[in-house]
Write a protein that binds this DNA or RNA. Structure first.
Lengths: 221, 221
DNA sequence: TACGTTTATGCCACTGAGTGGCACTATGGA
DNA sequence: TCCATAGTGCCACTCAGTGGCATAAACGTA
């Protein structure tokens, strides 16, 4: 009896789920999202459309599973993390990075890249991806309010911090996906750290007009 | 001959467009978004479904028009604004505030509140709303890169600044929509300023654990 | 007033996503 | 061996969204 081995029924269910994800990423990438019908996908996986919708809430959902795994781990981690008196923003960043460390499933990085590129190319997938980020942000906010000491329940700062975290994540994902070579989790971690480091500068960055006029007054706050 | 009076054809088109928006906001609010079919809406406005889709890209779009007007004005304003050596973030905030000043159409504020509340209550509308923000962000980023002097074209800071602006806007919108009484543009402006002011603090906000440390105050909300 | 051109609209048939209902089968427990 | 239960397949249905083509209204011109 293996503890890490759930009953057969669940294993089977998980296998069809993974087959749907892999086949969907493959078909969507090769043929395009809209040009691939669900009937086609279900036929390829030998599953009824009804079964598809028992596993995923909509057509977009199946292709976003890899990224969703990361954010689920983020929320798990956030539920147990120790604040230890450092800025919330910093803690959120570290929480995301340790969630990333947990993404050890085989080929996860490759699937995330496929998923992201599809989202970038498909309006409706982009929309659903953003919606997922939004719902995750709210869930995280609830955890933060529940576990940490925040005087004013209407304080907008925690929410902004989470939004900024997500914005940085998406930007880092974009950078990482455009790298050449096989995608690796370590590289994503590096891109995340770089992007996090750029956050404070985004509030103070000063720009002048472009080329026609010379910069009248460079950096001053 | 009135200069501010476009040809009859365009006026008619605009009128059906506005009728669709107003009727949609009304029906969606009263009956719910999903429980209102497009056939129903088109029947009420006495327009064919084909005409609906010539005016709006999808069912969600019609209910987001009021907010889209604001962001269109924001982009217009951004195309002509003078950077004058202040931080980009500050300039973006002021640009949005002056775009807001231009929203003088009758009942605009009320429509925005309806629109926002619908988005908050309807997952697919929320998703499309976020997608619209994202596309607007990209458009704004293109303008910023085109008009202002940014050394590195891959600099993530302008993008982050825009994302933060949008996050603050959405948060301010939420606060404003929950106010009691008739919604006013001035109140939205005030909520925007408040939220903008909270941005720097969101990066440095420090939190401790909830119940254990502080005085004997039980952890009930 | 008569004319052609342009532009918006109506109508109709069609694809495909997503749902509800019910019967069927495989798993796991007694 | 039998039964309860979870998961699946099948079928019919609703409704969003599209393509094509004919029509009508608006505008310019003679």
């Amino acid at each position: 009896m293996d503890a890490a081995r759930p009953p057969l029924r669940e294993r089977k269910k998980l296998r069809t789920r993974e087959a749907l994800i892999d086949t969907a990423l493959d078909l969507f990438t090769r043929q395009g999202f809209t040009r691939t019908t669900l009937d086609e996908l279900c036929y390829a996986v030998e599953v009824s459309k009804r079964t598809f919708f028992r596993n995923f809430v909509n057509k977009e959902d199946v292709a976003m599973a890899p990224t969703q795994d990361l954010w689920a781990a983020f929320l798990d981690e956030l539920r147990v993390r120790d604040p230890d008196g450092r800025p919330l923003m910093e803690m959120l960043q570290e929480t995301l990075l340790s969630a990333l460390e947990r993404m050890t499933a085989d080929g996860w990085a490759s699937r995330v890249v496929l998923s992201r590129n599809l989202a970038a190319a498909t309006p409706s997938m982009n929309a659903h991806g953003l919606d997922f980020c939004d719902r995750t942000t709210r869930a995280a906010l609830a955890i933060v309010h529940d576990r940490f000491d925040i005087a004013d329940p209407d304080d907008v700062r925690p929410r902004l911090a989470l939004d900024i975290l997500v914005a940085a994540f998406n930007k880092a994902l974009e950078k990482w996906a455009s790298r050449s070579g096989a995608p690796s989790r370590a590289d994503l971690g590096a891109d995340l750290r770089d992007t996090f480091a750029a956050i404070p500068g985004s509030l103070t960055l000063t720009v002048g007009p472009r080329s026609p006029e010379p910069p009248a007054r460079p950096a001053s706050i």
